[in-house]
């Protein structure tokens, strides 16, 4: 079943989709929409969501005691352990269902873990990897805003080269972050029996479809959601979707999925726009653009993006109808 926006609006006209109003995320933040898209999809397909969160913007801003912006069961444990925490919840679900306690046998439970890139690429990677390796049935969604934005724009393993951060700033001597963003999708796709996909709120139908796949997949799923931080990417509050579109059109954030080793590009871009358009649209790269070596750094990034795009097309062709298991 392909969901459409009118149906969802009808369904959620007078109810909250898991996350509710009254949260204190920045105006224009993409993260609540990542959660909303995922949880709406689950509920519209008849699932009852249970969510775990890693410490981060989405967590901090939605649950300031005694306020909670969630109308579904919610647990936050710590920064680095949402994979393990949701493992425990999901395992408890199986144990309690078996013993006929608490769990409602007439409901389809869907376990979600949300984490930022800090809680995923960096400090939470072990916990996430362990949970996926063990095969817990859950959907892990990273809302990737490319830095520790919750605490004021510190560098993460997801921060792109050239982006200004407070912990790897551009200085008189050092050029700021020079390392490329970690390829979390490939890391997660390296686990066996996992459904992995990238999504963006700027492509809602693709987003819904992938959540649906993840829900129906017999095993864990990892979804990387592009999640612009309007505040620290230094763009206007209304630009999250525009920037997301540019990310896809430039190949900076390719939309694809890997299901048991089979690659599929879900948004074909005929001709990639140059990445400089994505860079110039955001204030976080302003210092990079002022540097004499800007062309070199951007050139490297462009080269990487072009090659990755080619590689994805090759992988798609090569793995077509050849699931690894």
């Amino acid at each position: 079943m392909a969901l459409n926006i009118m149906q969802l609006a009808t369904m959620f006209a007078d109810k909250n989709p898991g996350i509710t109003q009254g949260h204190r995320l920045c105006p224009g933040c993409a993260a609540p929409n990542v959660a909303k898209f995922a949880l709406m999809t689950a509920q519209s397909l008849g699932y009852t969501p249970v969510v775990g969160l890693a410490t981060g913007c989405l967590e901090v801003s939605t649950t300031i005691y005694p306020f909670t912006a969630w109308n579904v069961p919610y647990i936050h444990n710590a920064f680095e352990n949402v994979g393990a925490t949701i493992s425990g919840v999901e395992t408890a679900y199986r144990a309690l269902a078996k013993k006929g306690r608490i769990v409602d046998p007439n409901k389809k439970y869907a376990f979600f873990a949300f984490a930022g890139d800090g809680g995923t690429y960096d400090i939470g990677l072990q916990s996430l990897s362990g949970a996926v390796e063990r095969g817990h049935k859950f959907i892990y969604i990273v809302y990737d805003n490319e830095g520790y934005m919750n605490t004021g724009n510190q560098r993460s393993g997801s921060t792109p080269a050239g982006s200004q951060t407070t912990t790897q700033p551009v200085g008189k001597k050092l050029p700021g972050k020079v390392q490329l963003k970690k390829n979390i999708v490939e890391i997660m796709a390296g686990h066996e029996n996992v459904y992995v996909a990238t999504v963006s709120t700027s492509e809602p139908m693709d987003f819904f479809k992938k959540i649906e796949k993840a829900l129906e997949f017999d095993g864990p799923a990892f979804i990387a959601a592009f999640s612009p931080c309007v505040r620290f990417w230094r763009v206007n509050d209304d630009k999250a979707v525009d920037i997301s579109k540019l990310a896809i059109e430039t190949g900076y954030w390719p939309l694809y999925e890997v299901e048991r080793g089979v690659y599929r590009i879900t948004k074909k871009v005929k001709e990639l726009k140059p990445v400089i358009e994505f860079i110039k649209a955001q204030g976080r790269f302003r210092n990079l653009l002022k540097r004499s070596d800007a062309d070199e750094i951007i050139g490297e990034l462009q080269e990487y993006i072009t090659r990755r795009w080619e590689r994805l097309q090759i992988l798609e062709e090569a793995t077509k109808d050849k699931p690894i298991r």
């Binding site: 509710t20 949260h23 105006p27 939605t62 005694p66 909670t68 109308n71």
Partner: peptide
């Protein structure tokens, strides 16, 4: 335990004042 025992209590919180 710091538990919020009711859902969606943030709906009381007015974020419109930020506008």
């Amino acid at each position: 335990g710091g538990i919020i025992d009711k859902p969606a209590t943030a709906k009381e919180y007015q974020t419109g004042t930020w506008r």
